[in-house]
């Protein structure tokens, strides 16, 4: 996985709350058996008309957001279905970080597994980003080691992130690889804790 350290990029603003994963990637695109190729259909129903034309009013279709790598959105982003395809689509489109006042749990977790940094914005940070929401500033720098969002005018805001999640992103680690280092613990657990109940819980 591509490690995440410092990132500077263009921001796309989707000022809606409760953006659900059905919108991020509609179900008709869930039938693929690969992880790639979802970027073109990201936000499909919002982005295109039924006959496949771009809707000019949708943020990702506007000149100013072309090549955006940071998405700024409203409360409870990524709610609904657990489909990781939503994260694959955002990543495939080119997003590396998603900023929102709050996230749905499953979506938030899925981000880290795909090299996307989800940032929960404090009230202060959300207010501080007003010029970005208004389109007066279009770029941001995200400094993961220092947990800071830096605006073009130099103002900066801290953001929280669990330490292990930070390390995963910084090092670009695959978490199955990490877990397999706990092989002995798993073996021991199975033997001591699970085996006695095998007849109760085994298939």
């Amino acid at each position: 996985m591509e490690p995440f350290n410092q990132h500077e990029g263009k921001v796309a603003v989707l000022n809606r709350s409760n953006v659900d994963t059905d919108q991020i990637i509609p179900k008709q695109f869930l039938k693929r058996i690969e992880k790639t190729g979802f970027g073109d259909v990201l936000f499909y129903d919002w982005r295109y008309t039924p006959d496949g034309k771009e809707r000019p009013e949708f943020p990702l279709n506007q000149e100013a957001t072309q090549g955006a790598t940071i998405l700024l959105a409203g409360h409870n982003f990524g709610c609904g279905s657990s489909r990781e395809h939503a994260v694959w689509a955002l990543r495939d489109y080119g997003f590396r970080a998603i900023l929102a006042p709050s996230f749905a749990d499953i979506f938030y977790n899925n981000c880290f597994k795909n090299g996307i940094l989800p940032i929960s914005l404090s009230d202060t940070a959300w207010t501080g980003l007003t010029p970005v929401i208004r389109g007066e500033m279009t770029r941001l720098t995200i400094d993961l080691p220092h947990q800071k969002i830096i605006l073009q005018n130099g103002e900066s805001y801290e953001f929280p992130i669990a330490d292990y999640a930070k390390q995963m992103l910084l090092l670009g680690l695959d978490d199955i690889g990490i877990t397999l280092r706990y092989q002995q613990d798993i073996d021991r657990y199975e033997l001591n804790k699970r085996q006695p109940y095998q007849r109760v819980y085994g298939l």
Binding site: D105, N110, K113, A162, T179
Partner: peptide, 22 residues
């Protein structure tokens, strides 16, 4: 609880999952 596909792979491989206690 529901999980994403990376976690499906993780459970298949390890029968375990890293979870923050809610």
């Amino acid at each position: 609880f529901g999980i994403g596909t990376s976690e499906v792979e993780h459970v298949l491989a390890t029968q375990c999952l890293w979870q923050v206690r809610p």
